[in-house]
Design a protein around this nucleic acid. Structure first.
Lengths: 112, 112
DNA sequence: ACCACATGTCAGTATGTTCTGACACATGGC
DNA sequence: GCCATGTGTCAGAACATACTGACATGTGGT
């Protein structure tokens, strides 16, 4: 019974297509997402791997997370350090003219 | 036999996913693409429909066209006016972690 | 000749995003 | 106590993009 919940991990809520597109529209964020596809990682390590400053990475991660492409949680390592692990969510969007029409409709509804 | 060529209309070359994403990452361009999904249109009319200035629309159309999401051609109307008609290409991208990895690899190759 | 409508371009401004450097805080090991 | 490592935030500079307004060009119709 306890497995029921765990089995649902991986099923992402699918936020708007537009937010996903905006989130991935920057080379750095595209690289971050790609790196995270290799597996989960914590912020400082990720910053080293991608050779970018932590504050900057922090900003980009926030954008990715807001779009629902990434999720993160704090963990305490063996030596007691608080570490934020980030994972890529298994998103899936179909980018077609029809999807664009739907996304644009969403945008208009937002202006109400 | 002459149909062979015409039958190929609609098969787009599929430019990079990243360029497509960047092109659609702006609300205005998303709306432009959505409007063009209704059918082809010429620039001035499109500007009126979307209530944006022609110079601005011109800029956005250039970006959409560079990404391969849109194509355009000049035509001469019955009353002799040169009009630029724009059409949305039938693009199709699958936006997943794997696609992101591929797109990021593309980005890195570009820096060589 | 002038008006209405189409095309395109350019300079300059406004706005928004990206990026850096400095700061503050916490923990374990030397 | 101090250093290394982790976390986060903020102000301001640097950069990129979006946007406006004015201009130049062409056509047919009145």
């Amino acid at each position: 019974m306890a497995l029921t919940t765990d089995a649902r991990i991986g099923v992402s809520p699918q936020v708007g297509l537009f937010e996903a597109i905006v989130a991935l529209s920057h080379p750095q964020r595209m690289r971050i997402a790609a790196k995270l596809a290799e597996g989960r990682n914590y912020v400082s390590q990720l910053a080293r791997d991608l050779q970018m400053s932590r504050p900057l990475l922090h900003l980009h991660l926030a954008r990715l997370e807001a779009a629902g492409l990434v999720r993160s949680e704090m963990e305490v390592s063996d030596d007691g350090k608080a570490m934020r692990y980030v994972v890529l969510t298994p998103f899936s969007f179909h980018l077609t003219p029809d999807a664009v029409v739907a996304a644009a409709r969403e945008l208009n509804n937002r202006d109400d």
